[in-house]
């Protein structure tokens, strides 16, 4: 049986792992390669690296990090953050990433999703949706969650599937950093509606939250950051807990 995936996410700034709460207030959480290795040893199913650096040196730092990670780890990993063109995506894949994650650039230029899917294959293309519940609607936000768009979460999810995305990384901004559990309603709605894997993200604070998201939605994977970085939940304990609840886990 196909297993539900547990994915630690490493937010990278200037080559270090950081984690913000509600997208601000950045704290240092350590060396990304060391953290990545630790997570692999503990049984992480995949890793995501999101680069939030905003300097001209960014690309170089990110690529050298990807190269280091790909030598040292033996599970799949995704790289995202500021990837805005086919060339930038190709650089990351050639450096050794298995998938790229795109976000704002896809909203700005939806044909980028199509181009990436045809150049790299859908399996390489993750579209990240930062969504927020405002005025009765789940809306897509871009630019690190600062700018609302015209898209509802559901319409954009269906659209990126149509354009050839291989996977959706769905982050609830209402829940991100709150440790109060995943946004089950929108995760369930989207994961029922699309026929590509959905990674639930934002809000994981305790083991029960992972049980909820796997029992109450069709999410294929769940992603979290700070609770893993700061040791609040250990991956081996989490996986054992999920197995005890009869959730298919590696």
């Amino acid at each position: 049986m196909l297993k539900k995936r547990i994915i630690p996410c490493l937010d990278i700034k200037d080559g270090r792992t950081v984690k913000g709460v509600n997208f601000v207030d950045i704290r240092d959480a350590g060396n990304p390669v060391e953290l990545a290795k630790k997570y692999v040893e503990e049984g992480a199913d995949e890793l995501v690296f999101l680069d939030i650096t905003a300097t001209v040196e960014k690309r170089k730092t990110l690529l050298s990090l990807v190269e280091e990670v790909t030598v040292k780890i033996n599970i799949p990993f995704t790289v995202g953050g500021g990837i805005g063109s086919v060339n930038a995506a190709k650089e990351v894949i050639l450096a050794g990433a298995d998938k790229v994650s795109i976000n704002s650039a896809a909203v700005k230029n939806p044909s980028l999703v199509q181009e990436l899917a045809s150049e790299l294959g859908s399996q390489c293309v993750v579209v990240a949706l930062d969504v927020k519940y405002v005025e009765g609607t789940w809306r897509v936000f871009v630019s690190g969650g600062r700018t609302p768009t015209e898209w509802t979460a559901m319409d954009w999810a269906k659209e990126v599937e149509r354009l050839g995305a291989g996977e959706i990384l769905l982050t609830s901004m209402n829940k991100d950093g709150t440790k109060s559990g995943f946004s089950l309603d929108i995760t369930e709605a989207i994961s029922r509606q699309v026929n590509i894997p959905v990674i639930a993200s934002g809000g994981a604070g305790k083991e029960e939250h992972f049980v909820e998201v796997f029992q109450q939605t069709q999410a294929s994977a769940a992603l979290a950051a700070s609770i893993f970085h700061f040791g609040e939940i250990s991956i081996p304990n989490l996986k054992q807990y999920l197995k005890n609840q009869n959730i298919p886990i590696r």
Binding site: L2, K3, G166, E167, N195, P197, A221, R250
Partner: peptide, 13 residues
Amino acid sequence: PAKDIVPHMGWND
């Protein structure tokens, strides 16, 4: 067949 999510992506036994 499109009876479930395609691609088959992830860990399986």
